[in-house]
Design a binder for these strands. Structure first.
Lengths: 163, 163
DNA sequence: ATGTTTATGTTATACTATAACGCAGGAGCG
DNA sequence: CGCTCCTGCGTTATAGTATAACATAAACAT
C-alpha cells in the first residue's frame, strides 16, 4: 500500500505522488472515465504538495502549462476529480487537496495546519461512526459529511510560532 | 434547560428563540460585551428559524428593518456573534446559524437537511473525542474543528422526494 | 462518415467576503 | 463642561470564490 505514512511525516514524495497518480488512472479506467490533459495536470498539481490549493492557484499553474486562463477550466477539472473521489474539497479553506487514498471507501477527516497549510487525511472511521450515531439519535440520514480540524502539525507545533 | 429538543422536532419555537436570546444577552453581559441593535436584530433573524442563512440573506432582512444595505453591516454583526459563541458558521453552505446552546462548551456537529435546509446541532462530544484521537496519532494539535453532515432530516426523509 | 456524447473554449456574471477610512456617540477624566 | 479615547457603525471600493450559458471541438460508436 503506497500511503501508510502521513502527510506530516517525511517520505519519498515523488514516489508518493507518482503512485497515487497511477492509482487514480487505474480507478478511472475501471469506471470508464477519462483522465484528459487538464484533469491529469490538475491532479498532478495537487499531488505536488500535501497542501490545499485554491481553484485560482490551480488555474494559475494550469495557465503556465498552456491552458486557458478562465475559471471554469480549473473548476471543471476539480469538480470532475472530486466526483471521482480523487480530490477532496477543504471547505474551511475554500480549497482542494488530492486524495491520498483513492479507491478506498472513506469519509475522510482532514487535519489542516494553519501555519504551513499542510493537509493530512486522518484515519477517520471512528469519527464517521460517532457522527453517524449522533445523526441516528435525531433520525437524520447522512449523505455526505465534512470533518475538518484546524490546528498545528507536528513540525509547526515544535516550532511553536504564533500565527 | 431550554433546548432539550432537536431543531427537527416540533416545539414551541417562540419560547425556544426567546429563551435563547435571553441566554445570549446574559452571556454577553457577563463578559462585558454589548448587544447593540444590529447585533440583536441579527441574532433574532437567525433565531427565527432553525436554518442557516447567508450573510446577504441576513443583510436583506436587516435592510427591511432600516439598517444600511452594505455587506459589512451584516458581516460585522455575524462575526461578532460568532466570536461570542452565539452563532455558528456552516461552512458547507457559506451560511450562519444561531447557536442553540450558548454558553455550554461544545464543538458542535451540524446536521444539514439538503431539502428544507434545516440545521440541527447534534450532541457531538463523542465525535470530537474520536477526531481528537485521530489527531493524536499524527501528533496534530487541534485548535478548531468543523463537523458537518449533509443529508435528510426526519421530515424530508419521510417525504422521500428527490433533490 | 455521420450522428451522438463528452469535454473544452469563452464570455459574462453571480455570489461571498473584506479592506480602509471617516463619523457618531458614550465613558472616563480633568 | 470640554477633552479624548474607544467602540461601533456608515460608506466606498474592491478582492476572492464560483457558476451559468452558449459555442466549438474532440472522441466514440456504429
Amino acid at each position: 500500500m503506497p500511503h501508510d505514512h502521513s502527510a506530516f511525516a517525511p517520505h519519498d514524495h515523488a514516489a508518493c505522488a507518482g503512485g497515487t497518480l497511477a492509482l487514480a488512472e487505474q480507478r478511472l479506467a475501471e469506471v470508464g472515465q477519462r483522465l484528459t490533459p487538464v484533469r491529469r495536470r490538475t491532479l498532478q498539481i495537487l499531488l505536488e504538495s500535501h497542501r490545499a490549493l485554491g481553484a485560482y492557484d490551480v488555474l494559475e499553474r494550469l495557465v503556465a502549462d498552456g491552458f486557458a486562463n478562465q475559471p471554469p477550466v480549473a473548476y471543471r477539472a476539480l469538480e470532475f476529480l472530486e466526483e471521482q473521489g480523487l480530490v477532496h474539497r477543504i471547505r474551511r479553506l475554500n480549497a482542494f487537496a488530492a486524495c491520498m487514498h483513492p479507491g478506498e471507501a472513506h469519509a475522510p477527516a482532514f487535519l489542516i495546519c494553519r501555519t504551513c497549510h499542510a493537509v493530512a487525511e486522518a484515519p477517520a472511521a471512528a469519527v464517521g461512526e460517532a457522527l453517524q450515531a449522533a445523526a441516528d439519535t435525531l433520525h437524520f440520514t447522512i449523505e455526505r459529511s465534512t470533518i475538518e480540524a484546524l490546528g498545528l502539525c507536528p513540525t509547526c507545533t515544535g516550532a511553536a510560532h504564533a500565527d
